[in-house]
Amino acid sequence: MSRQRKATPSARIGMLTYHALMLAISAVFLLPFYWMTISAFKTNAEIFSNPVTWLPDPIRWENMTSLLTREDFPFVQQFVNSVFYAGTVAVLVCLSCSLAAYSFGCLRWRGRNLVFGLTVCALLMPTIVTFLPIYLAWSKIGLTGTYWPLITPFLFGDAFFIFMLRQFFMGVPRELLDAARLDGASEFRIWWQIVMPQLRTPLIIVGLFATVYTWNEFFLPLIYLQDREAFPLSVGLFTFQSQRAVEWSVSMMGAFLTALPMVALFLLTQRLFQRGLSSTGLK
C-alpha cells in the first residue's frame, strides 16, 4: 500500500480536503442519531426550544427511569419480546437456511437449478403478494396473537438468507467433501461436522443480519400480535408514538433504547458485518 509514501504538501492538502469532506458527510449522516440521542435526554419544551440546544442541559436521566417504569409503554417486556423474536429467527435461519444452502452450493442433483431459480423468484417476490392468504390461514387455525406466524416460516428457510449462504457454501472445496465421502461419512455428518464448522463466520454473519432485520421488522408483528405486552419494540414504539404523540421525549428515549442494542451489536461485530455485505450474493 502507498500509505507510508512520504507525503508531499499537495498530497497533504488533498488528504485534509478528503477528511474534511468525509467528516462533513458523516455529520449529515449522524445528525438524526445525534438528535434522537439528545432529545431522549431533554424535556418536551427543550426539544422544541429556539434557539436549538445542542447539548441537553441538564441531562434528564429521569426520562430513562420513567420510560422503564411507565405502564402504558411496557418497554422492558417489549425489549424481552424483541430479543426473543430476533434471537429465535436468527437461530432458525442459521439452521434451516444452511440445509438448503448446502444442497444448492455443495450437492449436485437433478432439478437443483430449477429449485434455486424458484428461490430467486421467491426472493424477488413482494411480501404482500402472499401475505393475505397466509394471514387468513393463521387466523383460521387460531394462532393470530402469537409469535407462531412470525417464526414458523423460518423453520423452513428464507430465500434471502439461503441466497446469501449459498455463496459461502459454494466456496467449500469439493475435494474436502469427496474425501469425507470416501471415508464413509453421511451427507448429514459432512454438513454438520465438516461444512458447518468451516463456515462458522458466514453463519454468524447471517445470524447477525437476521437479527437486525427481525429486530426492525414492523409490518408482520403489527398485524399478527394483539397485546401491548406481546409487541416487539418496533411495534410498541409505533403504537406508543401514535397514541401519545405529544410525549416526544419518551418517544425519543424509546427510539434511542430500541436502536442502541443493534448499534452495539454492530460495533462489536463490525468486521464480520462488512464482510457479509461485500459478499451479498455477488461474484
Partner: peptide
C-alpha cells in the same frame, strides 16, 4: 461505521426522528 449506522435504526424510530 457512520454510513452503515442508519440501516440499524428501526424505520419507526427513524421516521419519528425525522419528523422532529
Amino acid at each position: 461505521t457512520v454510513f452503515y449506522l442508519p440501516f440499524l435504526m428501526p424505520a419507526v424510530a427513524g421516521s419519528v426522528v425525522f419528523m422532529l
